[in-house]
Amino acid sequence: MSLAINHLLGLQNVSKNDIQLILDTAVTFREVLDRPIKKVPTLKGTTVVNLFYENSTRTRLSFELAEKRLSADTLNFSTSTSSTKKGETFKDTVRNIEAMKIDMIIVRHKSAGVPLYLTKISNASIINAGDGQHEHPTQALLDMYSIREKLGKLKGLKICIVGDIRHSRVALSNIYGLKTMGAEVSVCAPPTMIPKNLETFGVKVYTDIHKATRENDVLNVLRIQLERNAGSSIPSLREYHNYFGITSEVIEKNNKDILILHPGPINRGVEMSSEVADGPYQIILDQVTNGVAIRMAVLYLLGTKN
């Protein structure tokens, strides 16, 4: 079995078979992570570049660890400068790195479309680690993996993404991936956080967190970016917490079978109370562990393809 895709740019056009294969492959790697020696020689001799044009701690660590667990050689390039500040252009940077004979590029960038652009200027296999407000496919895959691990399936489940959908790269990947796998996807947020015409993606929109909690099996709770939202899309973080925050009260009043996910990092007391973040309904740290397995699966499947 091998993937139909050559790059992982997003989940929009990834088939059910490919997603299934990635999730199933990740199960094997997840087992590796519980062994005393957590390293396999699968990608020995493969060079992977982590090209991070935007601050990221956990995604970069997770990819780096996945690469090391597979015995790949890794290079890290992190910068927060962009080509608007004069200096080397993005294209020149990529061509220089490419000239060092590398095989795969993991890219994170504040501009949507950069991973696709990379496929045009590079021969490496490209994995999107988050582009602008567009996609973050490995996050969605690890979310799906974690839900499947906990609830045994994806098909037919009702999953609601809560929070700033408009500025999220996680939401769109989850919507595409989950729908492909046969889940019902909805979102819950104030209308200021919902992007234009989202309904046309086949997504139900809630503005009542109680109702969303009642009617769904899973809540995937997104981080509220403090600097971006307060004062513009929401009056205050306090008001957001009081009306959209996930608290024990919201869960216990509406749905004690709910499963809570969060891609991290958590703003405790904003999108989620500490009680919930540390409580029995959430699988937040499982997601982190599974993330390494998912990234190992993606790296392995793409890295051994050619």
């Binding site: 567009h134 769109l172 992007p195 234009k196 015409n197």
Partner: peptide, 15 residues
């Protein structure tokens, strides 16, 4: 332009 395509592409949109 803000619309279905901007939502799909994840680009900041102008209404």
């Amino acid at each position: 332009n803000e619309g279905t395509i901007s939502t799909e592409l994840g680009l900041p949109a102008l209404a």
